[in-house]
């Protein structure tokens, strides 16, 4: 069991629940099940599963920043919206760029904006100031979109066509929900795999070192500002790519994707699932979708249910669902090493 303590003395469990082989097996199983989903489930549910995949990637991008580098962006929807509006507009106005190229440009745009913000802000800003700055900039982005007729102003950018991908040997037509879902599944899996590889690489370990103790990391010769910027850029780029995948799936992008409630979605997903685990944001996104799905006919109760769940999670299971499972497992197997269910404590 590895536990780590940072400047604020917070302890984050990074003990894997299961061995990597089991996780790998599970992933293949989940991927296989999802690949069959278009033939098995109701199209409405399929649509929600697609949204969940996108939300999972979005939340992973946020947790790269928060869980692994210790920076909290409260305006992450801004990056998502950059990607969504970019691919949405490109497809809507049939700009002749291949769809994969659009996604790459979208990610590049997200990373570029993150870079600009980071250059100005990251060196000096952390904590609540970074939180408020990102909220403010996202709000400005939303206002700017609401003033641009080409992006649909308050009504949103609608009627976005789904793309066709021209590969070398054959054309892939993603117009049908089934085809686009399979593409979405592959894309989200690839992004997730890339992020997994990143956080387990040397760079990922540097991120974690900074998160635990920025001063000590600097002392060891790590260029803290540069790595923070890198993390911010990757996070922004991945969020924008998630947005880029979102636009053709819903076929409409509106200001609802830019407001600060949208920015809280990846945060909620991450905390619900568990900050301390790579898979936490994914579990959280799934759990959130399930809560929403089960309460969709309890009209007028959604605020109470969602709000109440959040407060409960923070008070009772601050390490999220994965942490909770961990605690339960420890309890069942009488392995009372258990810091699994505690908060990140200040001294």
């Amino acid at each position: 069991m590895v536990s780590m303590t940072d400047t604020q003395g917070s302890v984050i469990e990074r003990t894997p629940m299961m061995s990597r082989r089991v996780v790998g097996f599970l992933m293949v199983l989940v991927f296989g099940a999802l690949a069959l989903a278009p033939d098995l489930v109701n199209p409405g549910l399929l649509f929600l599963i697609g949204l969940t995949l996108i939300q999972a990637v979005f939340a992973l991008s946020w947790n790269l920043l928060f869980g692994y580098t210790g920076l909290a962006s409260f305006g992450h929807a801004g990056f998502f919206a950059i990607g969504a509006y970019f691919t949405g507009a490109m497809l809507r106005y049939t700009v002749p760029i291949p769809f994969l190229g659009m996604l790459v440009i979208a990610a590049g745009l997200g990373a570029l904006v993150a870079c600009l913000i980071g250059l100005v802000a990251l060196r000096r800003l952390a904590g609540i100031f970074l939180a408020v700055l990102t909220v403010a900039l996202t709000e400005v982005l939303g206002r700017l979109i609401s003033y641009s007729p080409a992006l649909g102003e308050h009504d949103g950018l609608g009627n976005i066509p789904r793309p066709k991908i021209g590969l070398v040997l054959w054309d892939l037509d993603l117009t049908s929900s089934r085809a686009y879902f399979l593409f979405l599944l592959c894309a989200c899996s690839l992004i997730t795999a890339a992020l997994w590889w990143l956080v387990h690489s040397r760079t990922g370990r540097v991120f974690q070192a900074i998160r635990q103790d920025a001063d000590r990391a600097a002392f060891l010769g790590i260029n803290v500002a540069r790595y923070r910027l890198l993390s911010f850029m990757i996070s922004g780029g991945v969020a924008a790519m998630a947005g880029g995948l979102f636009a053709p799936w819903t076929r409409i992008v509106t200001l609802d994707e830019v407001n600060w409630l949208a920015s809280t979605q990846p945060i909620l997903n991450t905390l619900l699932g568990g900050v301390g685990s790579f898979w936490g944001p994914v579990v959280g996104a799934v759990a959130f979708t399930l809560i929403n799905y089960w309460t969709r006919t309890f009209v007028g109760l959604s605020e109470i249910v969602i709000g109440g769940t959040l407060v409960l999670v923070i008070i009772a299971a601050p390490t999220g669902i994965i942490g909770l499972l961990h605690t339960i497992r420890n309890w069942v197997f009488q392995r009372t090493a258990g810091k699994g269910g505690t908060h990140e404590r200040l001294p």
Partner: peptide
Amino acid sequence: IATFGLMLF
């Protein structure tokens, strides 16, 4: 996050 949840509630 807790106060955000409280707000919704």
